[in-house]
């Protein structure tokens, strides 16, 4: 077991004929994911590395019944691609694209919520269930199978944390990069709920950053529900200046809101182990699990 993505999950790749789409569809397939179809408007009937390409998501759904769509469409058309997938009935959408206009994401997220579709991203590395499948651009070899769930706003920071956790002889049940944009399809709470119900997951690592109030809301959720599994959190951006966007569109401190300090305090108050130093994520997870299991 794991959450959301399994070896059996049937994956559609939107934008499969593009450079990134084609490369990562191949890498995901090599990792073990079932890439069942691709979509590129005007390229229906072709095939890419043995995967049939359709003109529309509706065609792909009719012929190949995908459970999940992985979106590599450029930012000016990514919202359209996500909406197409939602309306065609695809239940899980992973959008890798960086640079999707935020007003577009307002529309897409509201529609996805109405239709019961889950969107991971945009501006994210995707999702990986080590040893089974990945739907995203993360380096597969960094993630070993195990029992730590991970969810992060940042891609490379997720790889870093995963690498540290695995270097302590531990492994990962499922890791999700939820994306660095201000409006993203899923939040930490969505994944904490999934990990709570997953018997394979023994602990969860949350990787947050400056901007917005998602971490604070998550801390409230953890406290109010007395979350059942041990949690380790890391927050990036302690040294970030106010009023500047730090690479991610969503990573900005505005006045008093969105500071790293507020997030760290909120997590600490909720009983979450907050790691101060980037180098200590793996050690902290290992110590917490040892304390709990030993």
């Amino acid at each position: 077991m794991a959450v959301e993505l399994f070896g059996t999950t049937r994956i559609l790749v939107q934008g499969i004929t593009g450079r990134e789409g084609r490369l990562h569809a191949k890498l995901c397939a090599e990792y073990g994911a079932r890439i069942v179809a691709g979509v590129t408007p005007g390229r229906g009937g072709e095939s890419v590395d043995g995967v049939p390409v359709f003109d529309t998501v509706a065609d792909a759904v009719a012929h190949r019944a995908p459970d999940m769509s992985l979106v590599f469409v450029p930012p000016n058309a990514a919202a359209d691609a996500m909406l197409e997938a939602v309306f065609a009935g695809v239940r899980h959408i992973v959008c890798i694209t960086e640079g999707v206009p935020v007003h577009d994401m307002i529309r897409v997220k509201r529609v996805a919520t109405t239709y019961g579709a889950t969107i991971i991203g945009p501006n994210c590395p995707g999702i990986i269930t080590p040893g089974h499948a990945k739907a995203g651009i993360m380096p597969g070899q960094t993630f070993l199978p195990g029992h730590v769930g991970m969810v992060s706003r940042s891609g490379t920071l997720l790889y870093e944390a995963a690498s540290q956790v695995c270097s302590h002889g531990l492994g990962i049940s499922t890791a999700i990069g939820i994306g660095g944009d201000p409006i993203i399809g899923t939040d930490f709470i969505r994944w904490l709920k999934a990990f709570a119900d997953d018997p394979e997951t023994e602990a969860v690592v949350l990787i947050g950053e400056i901007g917005g109030a998602m971490e604070e809301r998550t801390a409230d959720f953890i406290r109010e529900t007395a979350y059942s599994k041990p949690l380790v959190a890391f927050i990036a951006g302690q040294t970030a200046p106010e009023g500047r966007r730090m690479g991610h569109a969503g990573a900005i401190i505005m006045g008093r809101s969105g500071s790293a300090c507020s997030k760290v305090n909120a997590f600490r108050a909720a009983g979450v182990t907050v790691v101060a130093n980037l180098a200590d994520i793996g050690t902290s997870v290992a110590a917490l699990l040892e304390e709990r299991n030993g």
Partner: peptide, 17 residues
Amino acid sequence: MVNGAGLAMATMDFVKM
């Protein structure tokens, strides 16, 4: 100099520490 915004922010914090 870092790849990825999150890791870049975390690296700044790391330098401080």
